[in-house]
Protein backbone atom coordinates (compact mmCIF):
# COMPACT_ATOMS: atom_id res chain seq x y z
CA UNK A 1 0.00 0.00 0.00
CA UNK A 2 2.86 2.34 0.86
CA UNK A 3 6.29 2.23 -0.68
CA UNK A 4 8.86 4.91 0.17
CA UNK A 5 12.34 4.85 -1.31
CA UNK A 6 15.31 6.93 -0.23
CA UNK A 7 13.06 9.44 1.51
CA UNK A 8 14.89 12.56 2.52
CA UNK A 9 13.72 15.65 4.39
CA UNK A 10 15.93 18.64 4.96
CA UNK A 11 14.81 21.75 6.88
CA UNK A 12 16.59 24.94 5.98
CA UNK A 13 16.61 28.21 7.85
CA UNK A 14 18.88 31.14 7.05
CA UNK A 15 21.74 29.78 9.06
CA UNK A 16 21.14 26.11 9.73
CA UNK A 17 20.35 23.10 7.62
CA UNK A 18 18.89 20.14 9.49
CA UNK A 19 18.42 16.74 7.96
CA UNK A 20 15.34 15.21 9.59
CA UNK A 21 15.13 12.13 7.40
CA UNK A 22 17.95 10.55 5.47
CA UNK A 23 17.53 7.74 3.03
CA UNK A 24 14.55 6.09 4.60
CA UNK A 25 13.15 3.06 2.79
CA UNK A 26 9.84 1.74 3.99
CA UNK A 27 7.04 -0.49 2.78
CA UNK A 28 3.75 -0.89 4.55
CA UNK A 29 1.11 -3.31 3.49
CA UNK A 30 -2.63 -2.90 3.72
CA UNK A 31 -3.88 -3.84 7.19
CA UNK A 32 -0.45 -3.65 8.76
CA UNK A 33 0.15 -2.00 12.15
CA UNK A 34 3.57 -0.38 12.37
CA UNK A 35 5.07 1.44 15.33
CA UNK A 36 7.81 3.99 14.90
CA UNK A 37 10.08 4.56 17.89
CA UNK A 38 13.16 6.54 18.64
CA UNK A 39 14.47 9.41 20.73
CA UNK A 40 13.15 12.96 20.43
CA UNK A 41 14.23 14.69 17.26
CA UNK A 42 15.03 11.46 15.40
CA UNK A 43 12.55 12.25 12.63
CA UNK A 44 9.54 10.18 13.74
CA UNK A 45 7.03 12.98 13.33
CA UNK A 46 8.59 14.13 10.08
CA UNK A 47 8.18 10.63 8.70
CA UNK A 48 4.58 10.55 9.86
CA UNK A 49 3.84 13.93 8.23
CA UNK A 50 5.27 12.79 4.93
CA UNK A 51 3.43 9.49 5.06
CA UNK A 52 0.25 11.43 5.91
CA UNK A 53 0.73 13.80 2.96
CA UNK A 54 0.93 16.79 5.27
CA UNK A 55 4.40 17.52 3.98
CA UNK A 56 6.49 16.75 0.91
CA UNK A 57 9.84 14.95 1.08
CA UNK A 58 12.96 16.84 -0.10
CA UNK A 59 14.10 13.75 -1.99
CA UNK A 60 13.23 10.15 -2.74
CA UNK A 61 9.97 8.63 -3.97
CA UNK A 62 6.75 7.94 -2.21
CA UNK A 63 4.09 5.69 -3.65
CA UNK A 64 0.73 5.55 -1.93
CA UNK A 65 -2.00 3.22 -3.26
CA UNK A 66 -0.25 3.14 -6.61
CA UNK A 67 0.12 6.91 -6.94
CA UNK A 68 3.44 8.66 -6.98
CA UNK A 69 2.54 11.37 -4.46
CA UNK A 70 5.98 12.79 -3.62
CA UNK A 71 5.60 15.80 -5.86
CA UNK A 72 1.91 16.51 -5.21
CA UNK A 73 0.81 20.07 -4.74
CA UNK A 74 -0.86 21.07 -1.51
CA UNK A 75 -4.19 21.04 -3.28
CA UNK A 76 -3.64 17.50 -4.61
CA UNK A 77 -2.43 16.27 -1.23
CA UNK A 78 -5.51 17.66 0.50
CA UNK A 79 -7.70 15.98 -2.06
CA UNK A 80 -5.86 12.69 -1.60
CA UNK A 81 -5.94 12.84 2.21
CA UNK A 82 -9.68 13.21 2.17
CA UNK A 83 -11.19 9.82 2.97
CA UNK A 84 -7.89 7.93 2.59
CA UNK A 85 -5.99 8.94 5.71
CA UNK A 86 -7.14 9.45 9.28
CA UNK A 87 -5.06 11.22 11.92
CA UNK A 88 -4.85 10.83 15.69
CA UNK A 89 -2.70 13.32 17.61
CA UNK A 90 -1.20 13.32 21.07
CA UNK A 91 -3.06 16.54 21.94
CA UNK A 92 -6.35 15.30 20.44
CA UNK A 93 -6.86 18.51 18.37
CA UNK A 94 -10.61 18.43 18.66
CA UNK A 95 -12.34 21.65 17.64
CA UNK A 96 -13.54 23.29 20.84
CA UNK A 97 -16.58 24.95 19.28
CA UNK A 98 -17.97 21.70 17.85
CA UNK A 99 -19.74 18.97 19.81
CA UNK A 100 -18.51 15.39 19.86
CA UNK A 101 -20.97 14.54 17.13
CA UNK A 102 -19.99 17.52 14.99
CA UNK A 103 -16.27 16.85 15.37
CA UNK A 104 -16.70 13.34 14.13
CA UNK A 105 -19.00 14.43 11.33
CA UNK A 106 -16.51 16.95 9.94
CA UNK A 107 -14.53 14.61 7.61
CA UNK A 108 -17.80 13.37 6.10
CA UNK A 109 -18.87 16.96 5.40
CA UNK A 110 -15.73 17.53 3.42
CA UNK A 111 -16.40 14.30 1.53
CA UNK A 112 -19.77 15.75 0.56
CA UNK A 113 -21.66 12.78 1.94
CA UNK A 114 -25.46 12.87 2.03
CA UNK A 115 -27.03 13.75 5.34
CA UNK A 116 -28.73 10.43 6.13
CA UNK A 117 -25.57 8.47 5.39
CA UNK A 118 -23.60 10.88 7.58
CA UNK A 119 -25.90 10.34 10.52
CA UNK A 120 -25.65 6.59 10.13
CA UNK A 121 -21.86 6.56 9.91
CA UNK A 122 -21.25 9.01 12.75
CA UNK A 123 -23.58 7.19 15.11
CA UNK A 124 -22.13 3.83 14.21
CA UNK A 125 -18.61 5.13 14.81
CA UNK A 126 -19.54 6.78 18.10
CA UNK A 127 -21.02 3.45 19.21
CA UNK A 128 -17.84 1.68 18.23
CA UNK A 129 -15.69 3.95 20.39
CA UNK A 130 -18.35 3.85 23.09
CA UNK A 131 -18.92 7.60 23.37
CA UNK A 132 -22.42 7.83 21.93
CA UNK A 133 -23.84 8.97 25.26
CA UNK A 134 -21.63 12.07 25.07
CA UNK A 135 -22.39 13.05 21.51
CA UNK A 136 -23.83 16.48 22.34
CA UNK A 137 -21.03 17.44 24.70
CA UNK A 138 -18.24 19.80 23.85
CA UNK A 139 -14.60 18.60 24.09
CA UNK A 140 -13.93 20.66 27.24
CA UNK A 141 -16.62 18.64 29.01
CA UNK A 142 -14.82 15.33 28.40
CA UNK A 143 -11.90 13.56 30.10
CA UNK A 144 -8.66 13.14 28.17
CA UNK A 145 -9.43 9.53 27.43
CA UNK A 146 -12.87 10.38 26.14
CA UNK A 147 -11.44 13.14 23.99
CA UNK A 148 -8.96 10.78 22.42
CA UNK A 149 -11.74 8.29 21.74
CA UNK A 150 -13.57 11.05 19.89
CA UNK A 151 -10.37 11.81 17.97
CA UNK A 152 -10.09 8.15 17.02
CA UNK A 153 -13.72 8.18 15.92
CA UNK A 154 -13.04 11.21 13.76
CA UNK A 155 -9.98 9.49 12.25
CA UNK A 156 -11.88 6.36 11.27
CA UNK A 157 -15.38 7.65 10.46
CA UNK A 158 -14.61 7.97 6.75
CA UNK A 159 -13.14 4.40 6.69
CA UNK A 160 -9.65 5.46 5.63
CA UNK A 161 -7.12 2.95 4.37
CA UNK A 162 -4.44 4.40 6.63
CA UNK A 163 -4.54 5.78 10.17
CA UNK A 164 -1.60 7.80 11.38
CA UNK A 165 -1.26 8.19 15.14
CA UNK A 166 1.31 10.52 16.69
CA UNK A 167 1.83 9.41 20.32
CA UNK A 168 -1.88 8.79 20.79
CA UNK A 169 -1.51 7.90 24.47
CA UNK A 170 1.08 10.56 25.32
CA UNK A 171 -1.38 12.72 27.21
CA UNK A 172 -3.33 9.90 28.86
CA UNK A 173 -3.01 7.87 32.03
CA UNK A 174 -2.36 4.15 31.66
CA UNK A 175 -6.00 3.04 31.87
CA UNK A 176 -7.19 5.49 29.27
CA UNK A 177 -4.08 4.82 27.20
CA UNK A 178 -4.82 1.15 27.16
CA UNK A 179 -8.39 1.77 26.10
CA UNK A 180 -7.22 3.86 23.16
CA UNK A 181 -4.74 1.21 22.12
CA UNK A 182 -7.53 -1.36 22.24
CA UNK A 183 -9.58 0.84 19.98
CA UNK A 184 -6.75 1.29 17.50
CA UNK A 185 -6.22 -2.44 17.45
CA UNK A 186 -9.90 -2.97 16.72
CA UNK A 187 -9.72 -0.47 13.87
CA UNK A 188 -6.66 -2.25 12.55
CA UNK A 189 -8.42 -5.57 12.74
CA UNK A 190 -11.28 -4.05 10.84
CA UNK A 191 -8.90 -3.41 7.96
CA UNK A 192 -7.13 -0.07 8.34
CA UNK A 193 -3.36 0.07 8.22
CA UNK A 194 -1.88 2.01 11.14
CA UNK A 195 1.39 3.81 11.52
CA UNK A 196 1.90 4.94 15.09
CA UNK A 197 4.70 7.04 16.55
CA UNK A 198 5.23 6.21 20.20
CA UNK A 199 7.70 6.40 23.07
CA UNK A 200 5.93 3.62 24.93
CA UNK A 201 7.29 0.10 24.43
CA UNK A 202 4.03 -1.21 25.87
CA UNK A 203 1.99 0.52 23.21
CA UNK A 204 4.39 -0.65 20.54
CA UNK A 205 3.63 -4.19 21.58
CA UNK A 206 0.21 -3.83 20.01
CA UNK A 207 1.73 -3.54 16.54
CA UNK A 208 3.09 -6.05 14.06
CA UNK A 209 6.34 -4.34 13.40
CA UNK A 210 8.47 -1.79 15.21
CA UNK A 211 10.77 0.55 13.35
CA UNK A 212 13.51 2.32 15.25
CA UNK A 213 14.66 5.64 13.93
CA UNK A 214 17.83 7.43 14.93
CA UNK A 215 19.13 10.66 13.44
CA UNK A 216 16.85 10.31 10.46
CA UNK A 217 17.80 6.73 9.65
CA UNK A 218 15.99 3.48 10.21
CA UNK A 219 18.33 1.60 12.45
CA UNK A 220 16.37 -1.56 13.26
CA UNK A 221 13.14 -3.19 12.24
CA UNK A 222 11.54 -5.87 14.50
CA UNK A 223 8.64 -8.03 13.44
CA UNK A 224 6.47 -9.10 16.35
CA UNK A 225 4.67 -12.39 16.58
CA UNK A 226 1.21 -11.00 16.29
CA UNK A 227 0.15 -11.45 12.68
CA UNK A 228 -2.22 -9.09 11.04
CA UNK A 229 -5.53 -10.26 9.74
CA UNK A 230 -5.11 -9.37 6.09
CA UNK A 231 -1.59 -10.55 5.55
Amino acid sequence: MIKADHLKKVYRTDEVETTALNNVNLEIEAGEFVSVMGPSGCGKSTLLNILGLLDNPSGGTYNFLGHDVAGYSERQRAQFRKGNIGFVFQSFNLIDELTVYENVELPLLYLGMASAERVRRVEETLERVNIMHRKDHFPQQLSGGQQQRVAVARAVVASPKLILADEPTGNLDSTNGEEVMQLLTEMNEAGAAIVMVTHSPADAEYSHRIIHLFDGHIVTENFLERKYAHA
Binding site: A78, R81, G83, F87, N93, L106, Y110, R154
Partner: peptide, 11 residues
Protein backbone atom coordinates in the same frame (compact mmCIF):
# COMPACT_ATOMS: atom_id res chain seq x y z
CA UNK B 1 -7.84 25.46 10.47
CA UNK B 2 -5.12 22.83 10.87
CA UNK B 3 -7.60 20.07 11.63
CA UNK B 4 -9.87 21.00 8.74
CA UNK B 5 -6.89 20.91 6.40
CA UNK B 6 -5.72 17.55 7.77
CA UNK B 7 -9.17 16.15 7.11
CA UNK B 8 -8.93 17.37 3.54
CA UNK B 9 -10.33 20.92 3.41
CA UNK B 10 -9.06 22.92 0.48
CA UNK B 11 -7.84 26.47 1.06
Amino acid sequence: VGMRKVIGAQR
